[in-house]
Design a protein around this nucleic acid. Sequence first.
DNA 1: CGAACGACCTGCAGGC
DNA 2: TGCCTGCAGGTCGTTC
Length: 269
Amino acid sequence: MPELPEVEVTRIGISNYINSNTIKRIVAYSTNLRWPISPDIFSILPGETINSVERRGKYLLLKCQSGILLIHLGMTGQLRIVTTTCTPEKHDHLDIVFIDEVVLRLNDARRFGSVFWVDSNLEHKFIEQMGPEPLSEEFDGNYLYQKSRGRKIIVKKFLLDQQVVAGIGNIYANEALFHAGIHPSIPAGRISKVRYKNLVVAIKLVLATSIKLGGTMIDFRDGTEKNGHFPQKFSVYNRSGRPCTICGTQIQYKRVMRRSIYFCKSCQK
DNA sequence: CGAACGACCTGCAGGC
DNA sequence: TGCCTGCAGGTCGTTC
């Protein structure tokens, strides 16, 4: 499930192959992702050179001369670097073919991902409304504290709001709350500034650690199944019934508002 | 404005 | 064996 670390690891991985490379053509095997892929890209992209590969929250930004290609991987989206001789498989939707025959191929089984083309002098509304990058200095305890005043939603859901902070998903929200010792079901507006400072430290730590370890499930190179090593570091996520790494209490699992929460009832208050 | 929920989609696990 | 149900996940759009 691509969250910020997975997108970042993907960004670094594909950059080596596509940065400064020029697009030859676009091939679509299906265009109905979360939204139809902008038909513009078939005529605009050929001839464009990738000037930089950037990331904003969970979005990848392929910056070209005349605009930006935004890619969101949804839940199951994966980008792979292949060659033109590599035949497409099930759930492959889009090829960005470069002049040196390198292909950036998008695969997305559940099709929650999306691809947008935006004119360079327009900001896309989804990006525009997005909160700060969690690894930036701008994102600190004071910011979260101020942002949460008056909010009644539970803190775990608050962290998933991309307008609050960009790039956090269910896995890292659960993990960060554990490391900060905060119960996921507490209303966001009732948490002290000190606790938010601890939470921000925890968020930055879990995200940075995951990026360093290669995320949770990344595989961008042709043929080589190279999974990230972060799952081995999970403290609560997907560990229902297993002992807490700190106190040994069984990790709790609950469905709250159609989302899974994992926590230690002894360590998180 | 905030909160809650439906919808989108597919693969997989579990129950019968 | 095979069908059915529920769950997993992100997030936009709609409704209250």
